Simulated assay, not measured.
Amino acid sequence: MTFGNALASLRARRPLVQNITNFVAMQTMANVLLAAGASPAMVHAREEAAEFAGLAHALTLNTGTPEPDWVAAMAAAADVASGRGIPVVLDPVAAGATAYRRDINMALARRVPGLIVKGNASEILALTGRDSAAKGPDSGDGVQAAEPAAVALARATGGIVAVTGAVDFVTDGQRQARIRNGSPAMTQVTALGCALTGIVAAFAVGQDDRFHATVAALAYYAVAGELATAVSPLPGSFAVGFLNALSDVTPTQLDALALVEFDHVPL
């Protein structure tokens, strides 16, 4: 399946994506998913999160503003989603900033077989117990420094790990890909990184090869960033232009513009 076919599949399915995400990201994430063609649901209450996971087509977990009831809701919803076999995507925000965050994220990563993890280099390093140069939620490490950790994490979970940065890296422990699209403007609008988690989940719905689906999601997001920057390079107008680009980019454009290199993980 091409990247363009994966985008067309998402828009045809219009998957319902349940997001247990942070306060900062909620509106941006909802708008991004709508622009892409998915249906977002921000359902995080402990009393209903697990029940709603029985209805959703995918689940995202974002630990940006963790507190005990939300963490319990994440665990309960993850159990239901895992039992149903629907995609679960974890965004381990600032995983190395405090012991509380590290423990929460490590527990969630172990909880769901076949999990998709999407984080910056410092978050992936922290999630695997390695030292990182994190600056709060921002990465202080280059993507390349986290590649061995990403491969190890993918093999340990049986899932997919995506490391975001200037050149994104995705691996399932056997295969790897690098996405060379994107724009620095994407780092100037808060919550766009968090919102990418929902796009990854939406692309993975109904796909047998979640590695390829994750690569397609990151390529789509990065291409939209490039297209938006060409029209609206400043942060305020870029935020609007990015939503427009997510909606406007066609499957044919995505296939033509995506700069992706595939390879096998060295032995």
Score class of each variant (00 low, 15 high):
57 H>S: 12
244 N>R: 11
21 T>M: 09
100 Y>L: 09
217 A>D: 09
142 G>P: 13
55 L>N: 12
17 V>C: 02
211 F>A: 11
40 P>M: 03
259 L>A: 13
128 T>N: 02
113 P>V: 06
232 S>N: 15
210 R>V: 10
192 L>D: 11
247 S>H: 12
23 F>I: 12
30 A>I: 06
107 A>G: 12
234 L>N: 15
204 A>D: 11
236 G>H: 07
41 A>M: 11
142 G>M: 11
188 Q>E: 14
113 P>H: 03
28 T>K: 14
29 M>G: 14
211 F>L: 06
261 E>N: 10
59 L>F: 01
164 T>R: 08
144 Q>L: 13
260 V>D: 09
56 A>P: 05
19 N>C: 14
263 D>E: 15
83 G>C: 02
220 Y>Q: 09
18 Q>M: 04
249 V>I: 15
110 R>A: 15
203 F>C: 14
266 P>I: 07
44 H>P: 04
42 M>T: 04
83 G>H: 03
37 G>C: 10
24 V>P: 12
227 L>D: 14
34 L>M: 10
93 V>A: 09
210 R>L: 05
217 A>W: 00
65 T>R: 08
153 L>K: 04
145 A>Q: 11
220 Y>F: 13
186 M>K: 01
33 L>G: 05
23 F>S: 09
110 R>V: 09
163 V>R: 02
32 V>A: 10
4 G>D: 09
48 E>F: 05
118 K>R: 15
136 G>D: 09
108 L>S: 09
57 H>G: 10
155 R>S: 10
89 V>C: 04
207 Q>T: 04
166 A>M: 09
243 L>C: 14
92 P>W: 01
146 A>N: 08
165 G>W: 00
81 A>G: 08
144 Q>C: 05
30 A>S: 15
201 A>F: 01
191 A>F: 09
17 V>S: 06
252 T>W: 03
180 R>I: 00
230 A>L: 15
122 S>A: 11
267 L>P: 13
26 M>K: 10
246 L>N: 07
136 G>R: 05
233 P>T: 11
210 R>D: 05
247 S>R: 13
195 A>N: 00
190 T>K: 01
126 A>W: 06
124 I>C: 07
196 L>P: 08
263 D>I: 07
238 F>L: 03
150 A>E: 07
180 R>D: 03
39 S>W: 03
260 V>Q: 08
163 V>S: 03
91 D>Q: 02
116 I>Q: 04
137 P>I: 15
255 D>M: 08
166 A>S: 10
244 N>L: 01
233 P>G: 05
219 A>K: 04
